[in-house]
Amino acid sequence: MNTPDSKIDRLRRRAAAPLLGVLAAAVLAACSSQAAPGAGAMPPPEVSVAQVLSRPVAQWDDFTGRVAAVETVELRPRVSGYVERVAFAEGDEVEKGDLLFVIDQRPYRAALARAQAQLARARSESQLARSQDVRAEELLAASAISREEFEARRAASAQGDAEVRAAEAAVTAAQLDLQFTEVRSPIDGRAGRALVTAGNLAQADSTLLTTVVSLDPVHVYFDADEQSFLRYQALTRDGRRAADGNAVRVGLANEQGYPHKGIVDFTDNQVDPGTGTIRARAVVANPDRVFTPGLHARVQLEAAAAAEALLIDERAVLTDQDRKYVYVLGENNQAERRDIVPGRSVEGLRVVQDGLTAEDRVIVHGVQKVFFPGMPVAPTPIEMGDPAPQVQVASAEAP
């Protein structure tokens, strides 16, 4: 028979069972932790450490520019006429003197023949006048003619000589006109599209036939801001920068870095008041025809002579809001935070203007494993700029 007291006891035992389980688990956990102290502690993370690199570094400033041809010619005819032949392939490279267009030569050949005939007549008349002049001189000595007639024959001889010279000039002009019917390239370069084809009328000094641009070398124009220009002038006055012939490095949009080298050969004589910039021009060799006029170019200009600088790997630099910092290896292999003032980038490395010394060893790879300053690490020495060490994965062997 169940009494009220027995029912109450059963309810109490059911309520106490979960609490006993929790207490038992806590006791077991405590016993296991006491039995194996330090079994769950994490080992120090493996990181790569490199000595700060100290070496002379030249200062380079970055600009954007455009490629332009050294020589650009708009080819126009010197004589009028109908185009008889286009003698070049559009877009091909041409050499100075190559035939590009031929204008109908028949009218100019006829004009040359007419000028040559007039020259022959003038020479014949001049020879006759000269003979009469010589005879008149003999007759005058014998008092056979008057002084007036003698002077008239002397003037006719001089006039004949003048007419010969005029006829020779007319022949030369006709020869030039005939020569100008063959339109030739005045420079070495690449020809553009033929803007006038065979059968069309070309007006002298007016009709644009095609364009020719030189290819090697090329010019690269870029604009420097006013502050940079003033800084360059101060460096030049102090003797830390050459007055002219400064080196440049150039890279195109599809290239890594700045593989092409050149020099500055021109700087404008005034600053543009609208933009606050001054234009400069560099000369760059183009033997492989990498540059085409009109391309965008990235330009680095050597701002000052090489000076000693501290360099670290870009991957070691961390950001904390508006501050840059790195972790260096301290005593007992502990990571220490150092706030730095970074400078420009040099061949994948970052110049450090303040915050480090040449004796510091910087954590480069594995820096994301460092969670707080003073954290122990397991360092592996590398050279600054080296890639991250390869992780060795052990392969399981079959029993």
Rank of each mutant, 00 (worst) to 15 (best):
residue 4 P to W: 06
residue 5 D to F: 11
residue 6 S to L: 06
residue 8 I to N: 04
residue 10 R to N: 07
residue 10 R to Y: 06
residue 11 L to I: 09
residue 12 R to A: 08
residue 12 R to M: 06
residue 12 R to V: 12
residue 13 R to E: 15
residue 15 A to I: 13
residue 17 A to K: 03
residue 18 P to R: 04
residue 21 G to P: 00
residue 31 C to A: 15
residue 35 A to W: 12
residue 46 E to S: 14
residue 52 V to S: 12
residue 56 P to F: 14
residue 58 A to Y: 00
residue 60 W to A: 02
residue 60 W to E: 00
residue 72 T to V: 06
residue 72 T to I: 05
residue 78 R to K: 14
residue 78 R to V: 02
residue 79 V to D: 02
residue 86 V to R: 00
residue 92 D to R: 15
residue 93 E to M: 15
residue 107 P to K: 08
residue 111 A to D: 15
residue 111 A to H: 01
residue 112 L to F: 10
residue 115 A to W: 10
residue 116 Q to H: 10
residue 120 A to T: 01
residue 121 R to G: 05
residue 121 R to K: 08
residue 121 R to V: 04
residue 130 R to L: 08
residue 132 Q to V: 05
residue 133 D to R: 14
residue 140 L to Q: 02
residue 147 R to K: 08
residue 149 E to D: 05
residue 152 A to Q: 15
residue 153 R to F: 15
residue 155 A to R: 12
residue 156 A to R: 08
residue 162 A to Y: 07
residue 163 E to W: 00
residue 164 V to Y: 04
residue 168 E to L: 03
residue 168 E to W: 00
residue 168 E to R: 05
residue 172 T to I: 01
residue 175 Q to F: 08
residue 177 D to I: 00
residue 180 F to I: 04
residue 181 T to V: 02
residue 181 T to M: 02
residue 181 T to G: 13
residue 182 E to M: 08
residue 185 S to F: 08
residue 185 S to Y: 09
residue 188 D to V: 11
residue 198 A to T: 13
residue 198 A to G: 10
residue 199 G to Y: 12
residue 200 N to K: 11
residue 200 N to Q: 13
residue 201 L to R: 10
residue 204 A to H: 03
residue 205 D to W: 10
residue 205 D to R: 15
residue 205 D to K: 13
residue 207 T to C: 09
residue 207 T to E: 08
residue 211 T to P: 04
residue 215 L to I: 06
residue 217 P to C: 12
residue 220 V to Y: 11
residue 225 D to K: 11
residue 227 Q to F: 01
residue 230 L to M: 03
residue 243 A to C: 05
residue 245 G to P: 05
residue 249 R to A: 14
residue 249 R to L: 13
residue 252 L to R: 02
residue 253 A to S: 09
residue 254 N to Y: 07
residue 260 H to T: 06
residue 261 K to F: 09
residue 262 G to L: 03
residue 264 V to P: 09
residue 265 D to S: 07
residue 267 T to A: 10
residue 269 N to A: 14
residue 271 V to M: 14
residue 271 V to G: 10
residue 272 D to E: 14
residue 274 G to N: 10
residue 276 G to A: 06
residue 276 G to D: 11
residue 277 T to L: 08
residue 278 I to H: 07
residue 282 A to Q: 07
residue 283 V to I: 04
residue 285 A to E: 11
residue 285 A to N: 11
residue 286 N to C: 15
residue 287 P to T: 01
residue 289 R to H: 13
residue 295 L to K: 07
residue 297 A to T: 00
residue 301 L to G: 05
residue 302 E to L: 14
residue 302 E to G: 00
residue 303 A to P: 10
residue 305 A to V: 03
residue 308 E to P: 12
residue 312 I to V: 14
residue 319 T to G: 02
residue 320 D to A: 04
residue 322 D to L: 01
residue 323 R to N: 11
residue 325 Y to N: 14
residue 326 V to D: 13
residue 327 Y to L: 07
residue 336 E to G: 02
residue 337 R to C: 00
residue 338 R to G: 01
residue 341 V to N: 11
residue 344 R to V: 05
residue 347 E to I: 00
residue 349 L to H: 03
residue 349 L to E: 08
residue 350 R to Y: 05
residue 352 V to W: 06
residue 355 G to N: 02
residue 367 V to E: 13
residue 372 F to S: 10
residue 373 P to F: 09
residue 375 M to F: 02
residue 376 P to C: 06
residue 379 P to F: 00
residue 381 P to K: 07
residue 384 M to K: 02
residue 385 G to N: 03
residue 388 A to C: 06
residue 389 P to G: 09
residue 390 Q to N: 01
residue 392 Q to W: 08
residue 396 A to N: 09
residue 396 A to F: 10
residue 399 P to A: 15
